[in-house]
Amino acid sequence: MSIALRGARLLTARGIRAIQSRGYSDEMSFTLAAANKVFYDNVSVRQVDVPSFSGAFGILPKHVPTLAVLKPGVVTVYENDGSQKKVFVSSGTVTVNEDSSVQVLAEEAQPLDLIDASAAREVLSKSQSELASASTDKARAEAAIAVEVAEAIVKAAE
């Protein structure tokens, strides 16, 4: 009798553990951090959309592992409760690992609602004039990057 009971207890314990481990693998542990700020640190979210140089893509749990380089643009995070959060990133990397952990690391990031559209337009026109007046190859490349980022900010802020 007691053996049977213990067996049953063992079974249920195992059953619960199996469910828990399955539940875990359906979630992704998402980290969104920048040099100036941490937005998410190993938080479970529903979906993340990121802009990358090989095209913008969405990440759901169990996404195939990949690496990508971030393009200036907006990262959209769909949290588990359905709310959306938009964060502007300048550049950085995206890592999706085999265990469904996702790291988005940006050089600099700000929530979209903190960005001032008129200031962004100013930066854009300033960097465009810098690009026009750049003389060396290096200065031209630097100015081109500034224009690219500024364009992305203006687009995101509108």
Partner: peptide, 27 residues
């Protein structure tokens, strides 16, 4: 050995990735 499980990689992406990750680790 486990790089094969990562999808759509070319050496350009990895090189860029490495450069940025070196900077962030140094930081």
């Amino acid at each position: 050995p486990k790089l094969a499980v990562y999808d759509s990689l070319d050496s350009d992406v990895i090189q860029n990735y490495l450069e940025f990750s070196l900077a962030s680790m140094l930081f």
